[in-house]
Every structure is written in structure tokens, then in C-alpha cells.
Write a protein that binds this DNA or RNA. Sequence first.
DNA 1: CTGCAATTC
DNA 2: GAATTGCAG
Length: 269
Amino acid sequence: MSHKTKYTLVAIILVLGVYGYEHFLKTEEKAEIVDAGKEVKTYTNEYFLPTSTTGQIVHHEGYSLSYSEPHEQAEWVAYELKKSHLTNTNFKRPYFEIDNAVKTGAASWRNYKNSGYDRGHLCPAGDRSYSQFAYDETFLTSNISPQEHAFNSGIWNTLEQKVRYWASKYDGVFVVTGGVLSGNMKTIGTEKVAVPNQFYKVLIDTNSGHVKMIAFLMPHENSNKPLYDFVVSVDSIEALTGIDFFPELEDALENKLEASSSYKDWSFK
DNA sequence: CTGCAATTC
DNA sequence: GAATTGCAG
């Protein structure tokens, strides 16, 4: 063959080689996140996981979730927020990524684009700022729900900050949070991601002597009311969602704590 | 902290 | 599409 043909072939091989290597790197990066879901969780983490009404629980390094395919979002996200997790580091926000660990296919972030709704974190990025990996992992689409911006940056944000305050004060809390996926809901995007009409957050603390619980149920709208106005019993959220929140607790204790809507054990400062 | 959007390459 | 920059609650 001619020299010209040889050079052409070499050039093509080089281009394919570089492309292939970059593709290999990207595949490796994705594999890291997927494999992270297979890691064995700590005892405490497993212990407080709620039941799944959808049959699809996914474990990530920094949180676990139960994915509802019909609603294209998690019915709950659960994680332990330790005092040591709280840092002042200010990571750059990454791009949202489809969660490949969701076998039925997690929603694309494109559903949210120009929808008028925020990509609202369920496990807040601010709760996983102890490492770049943990922070980035919260930007998976299985960890977000459509939220009105005024709500997300308003009273919901206030609640999230209060959770961090409690995690610091009580040396760690276990957090379960999600939207109430029932009733008539609007949808956004081509995949019809449901817009919850209410959001909840359930906390349990076992590190402060005696076990205590608190639950919040908020309409999907901003509010200037104090946080304690939204305290409800865990039982009432279980009735709404069908989720059993702390099935591993001793029954008598579980029944007592979950029936209570008292917040006397939790400091609102 | 919680986010979106316009701009540039 | 990726990254930077600015803006808003």
C-alpha cells in the first residue's frame, strides 16, 4: 500500500484508540457509582431502613432508597446523619446523573428542565458534604423530587437545617424523607415524574439516652409557620404512604413512639 | 444553605 | 454537552 494509505490508517487507529480509552474511563467511573450500591451497609443503617412498598430498594454509599417506578422517584430516602458528617466544605455542584443502580430505569434530569420545578434533593447535598464522592452521589436522579422553588428554598430548607442542628446537638440522627406518592398529582416531563402534594421527614435518635422520634408532614407550598406546626405522628405518615418506618424496633416501643405527635424531646431552640 | 439560566467554548 | 458566571429565595 502507499505511504499515504499507511498514514491514513495510523491516524484512524490513533483516533479510535483515544476514543476507546476515554470511553473506557467513563465506563469505569459509572461502574464505581453502581458498584457503590452493592457495598454492605453498617448495622445501624440497615436496622432503621423502612419497608418498601415498591420492592425496589437501592443502596448507595451515602444513603439508601426505595424507588417507585410509576412515580419516577423514590418513595423514601434513608441515611444516618452523624455529627462528624457536618462540615463547612463547599463543593462545586456536579451535574445530575441518571441512577444506573435503579434497575427499572431512573428518571432523566431532563424531565425537570423548564418544568418550573426544582430538582429537590431528598437526601440534601448539605448532609453529605464530608467527601466529594458522598456529595456528588446525592446528585443522582433517584434522590430528587419535583419541588416548588419557594418551598425547597423556604420552609423545607429550614427543616433540613434544623435536622443538621439536631444531628449536631444529639450526636447523630437517622433520617427518612420523601414525597407522599398518592392522590392526584401533576406530572412533569416525558417520563411523567409525579409532583407530590406533600413531603414528609421522619427522624429517630438513639444516641441521647432514650430513643426518640419526630415526624414532619408538610404541604407542598412555602410557609412562614414555625416548624413544630408540622409535627405529626409517624403512624399518620404510615397511614398516608403505606410505609412501615421502623419495623425492627421492639413492637411495644415502636407502637408507643410512632403514635406520638409530641415534640417535647426535640429542641427547636 | 436551596436552586435555575444565560453565556461561552 | 461541559464549564463558567451571575442571579434569586
